[in-house]
Amino acid sequence: MKFAEIIPLLQLEPLVVIDDPDYEIETACGCDLMSDVLAFSQEKTLLLTGLTNPQVIRTAEMTDIRFIIFVRGKRPQEETIALAREKGINLYMSPKPMFECCGLLYKAGLNSENIRQI
């Protein structure tokens, strides 16, 4: 689905906008464990997280994730926003909690990632 469709669905507030909202999102990953994101994430994935520190941006950078949504209205630290701007990663914030965000996206047709077996 296009990222533009997600904006009203999760009532997103833009923090850093780099890519066109027509960007096609293929899967989503809701996660607060950055090592799990590093383990399982694919490109074209949208990351939903409650963590707001700069390591979230670093993790997205290493895994080529282009869109991050901070859930339950958590506004990230200024250094997190600055790093995202520098690295060209889109940041948005939703007032909705993680469970609701994931549920709405799943219901709208977004799939989870193919998780590798460990």
Partner: peptide, 15 residues
Amino acid sequence: DMGFGAGMGLNNIQH
């Protein structure tokens, strides 16, 4: 609390 220490680091490196 920072999102690390999930016990996946060395496993990820091997993978």
